[in-house]
Structure formats: structure tokens, C-alpha cells
Simulated assay, not measured.
Amino acid sequence: MATIRQHTATLLVPTIFFGYTLYANSTLLISSTATDAHAAENKNLSLSYVIDGEATRDLDALYKKELPHREPSVGVFGNARYAVLGAGRKGVVIGDDHWFFTTEEFKKVSQADISDAVERIDGIRKQLAERGITLVVAPLPAKSDIYAEELPGSLQSSAMADAYEAFSAALRDKGLTVADTRTALVQAKPFDPVFLKSDTHWTPHGAKATAAAIQSTLQAAGLTLPQQQVTAQWQTPVSIWGDLTRYVTSPEYAPAAGLTQENLPIYRTTAESPDAGADLFGDSAGAPVMLVGTSYSANENWSFVDFLRESLSTDVVNVAKEGLGPGVPMLDLLEGGVLDESTPSVVVWEFPVRFLGTKTLWKRVTSEPEGGHHNA
């Protein structure tokens, strides 16, 4: 049975939309003809101007240049849609209490997708092993898995949890070293949020729990690393608008919709260089550990590389990249000269499971804006 909210939305949203459309289009045409002297002499806003299609052609051309009230309209319509319908634009799923999720997490990953990825990863493991480097894979669970209780009941599913478990198991069956980050995040969740409410990424608390899980994995696998003195300090926190907020409304209008910025504590670490006489890593060696992956690693706001450096008590060099998914940064690493210039003994590969089965997992796509993968 339709609710009062749904009936109101049926009438209110279209009324606002078409009212604005008429107003904006009229303003656009009038302002254009008024500022173009030649056009003002040769055309007027008559009935024939509209019927003959000239107005449509002019609007099409003008839309490509500018649209009046664009920014306010994005905010106003976004707020109305969110308030009345509890929805955002394509790309976001709205949960309870201002929890937002990317639609990329609501899919079924096939066994073929997992098998294809594992075969590729196993091949990369072999390439690194030829250089004397151990690969450690850190699959990252989906936010919609860890915070499924914040979703509408109809959207709650075990699909992404199943994908995580199947992917991790398949990697282990191939003999790869795999960190169980999902268990670490679930165990850390009661103490502080491990994912941001309005962003696809984890919190520093989630990043720290994952770093500890990777350290435990290396220890269980018998992988020893040269130990260094690591100093750490908390820095001034930063406030950001979550990347999924922009799929609901504009930041300028977000507070009116009850949305707030995410506050992030910033953690920074430094590994002290060993004494020159000790020659701990060799004359041409770099950091013992190299981190590759997505914006979960590359974006310094989450402090992941810092927590990893502290957990491992050794230096970590970060070659992760934003906006390319997990596959392309690894391919770039293998094809570039970084591994020739440095000699890490371990490469940690942060790999969100929501990328399994995507067409761009192993391809660089320059024509698609980052919004397609929510800055991962």
C-alpha cells in the first residue's frame, strides 16, 4: 500500500522539476538573446520560434556552454530527492541513518570471475618470486558486507561476504599468502567505525585493524623482516565530504539535508634509517616492504601505510594509486622500473573484492571518470 510519503513524492518532485525546467530554460534563452546583439536583432521568443524547433536547437547549444542555477539545482533537487524519496543518483545506495554504499557492492561475483582473477594473481606471484619477492594479498571486504545491518532489509545479502570467502580460499589453494582482513574488521567494528558512513573507504581505525592482520599473517607464515625504530604521532584531524555524498547532493547543500563531513584523525609514522655501518638492507636496497593497491592505500587520509609501517616495525614504500582499481597499479609496478631500483622482500597487495568481475580490473580506462569506481 502506497505511503503518504510516496504519494507526496509522486506530486512534489515532478512539480519542482518541471517548474524549474520552465524557469531555467526561459532564463537561459532570454539571457542569451539579450547578451548576443546579433541574435537579439534576428530572433524573438515567439510561438513560431518554439514550433519551428529553433528554440530547441538554441537550448541544445546553450546547455553545452552553461546552465543557469546549475549548482543550486543539483543541491536543491538532491536534497528534495533524499528527503522525500530517501534516494540519491545512480551509483549510490541509501542505507539507514545517513549510511551510503556504492552500487558496485551489490552484485553477485561468479566463480568464473574469481577463478580468472586468482589465475592472474598467481601468475604475478610467480613473477615476483623470480625476483626473490614474496607476495602477500590482502583482500578487502565490501562495506555493504561489514555494515549490512545499515541496509534496507531487501538489500541485505551475503553475496559480497561469500565472494570474499571464496576469493580468499581460492588464493590459499594456489599457495598464496593471504591476510584475513574481514575477521579483523569485524572484530574491530564494536570499538569504532571501520568504514566511513558517507564514503566508500575505511576509517583510520579500519586501516589500523587491517595493518595488524597483515602483520599477524606475515608472522604466521614465518616471514621475517628487518626491524627498524618507527616513530609515530597524531596530527591535526581533517574534515572531508564523503565521496558518496556527491551522489546525493552538492556539498554546499548537504548540511540542509542533515549530512555532515567525515572527521579523520591523521596518523603519521617514520622509520628511522639504520646505521650506515650495519648495512642492514644492502647498499642499493630500499624499504623491505612495498605496498600496492587502490585509494584505500594511496590516499593518505586513511593513514594505512603509516599503520602498516608501525605494525611491521619496518619501513614501507607506498606505490598504490587512486582511481585505477587494484589490478592496474600492480601491472604498472611490474612493467615499470621501481622493482629494479628497489629490492623489497615483501609486496603487500591491497585488493577490494568489489572489483572482482569488473571489466576494468586489468585495464586502464581514461575515458571514464573516477566516479565510476568511487575513487578506488
Rank of each mutant, 00 (worst) to 15 (best):
H69V: 03
A80T: 12
L85M: 13
S48C: 00
S46M: 11
A80I: 09
P72S: 10
L45C: 07
N44W: 09
K90G: 10
V50T: 08
A87N: 12
S46Y: 03
L85Q: 14
E41S: 07
Y49N: 02
A87K: 15
P72L: 07
G53P: 04
E41H: 05
K65F: 05
V84L: 15
H69N: 13
K90F: 11
Y63T: 03
L45I: 13
V93N: 00
E66F: 10
R89N: 13
L45T: 10
V76G: 03
L62I: 05
K90P: 02
A55Y: 02
L67A: 03
G91E: 01
G53C: 04
R70A: 15
K64C: 02
K64N: 11
L59S: 02
R70Y: 15
N44R: 14
L47D: 07
D60A: 14
G88M: 06
F77D: 00
V92S: 01
R89T: 10
P72N: 07
T56G: 06
V93C: 01
D52V: 01
A55C: 03
I51H: 08
V92I: 08
R81F: 13
N42V: 05
L85T: 06
Y82E: 06
G75C: 03
A83V: 09
V76H: 06
T56I: 11
I51M: 13
G91N: 06
A80G: 11
L45M: 14
G88V: 04
Y49T: 09
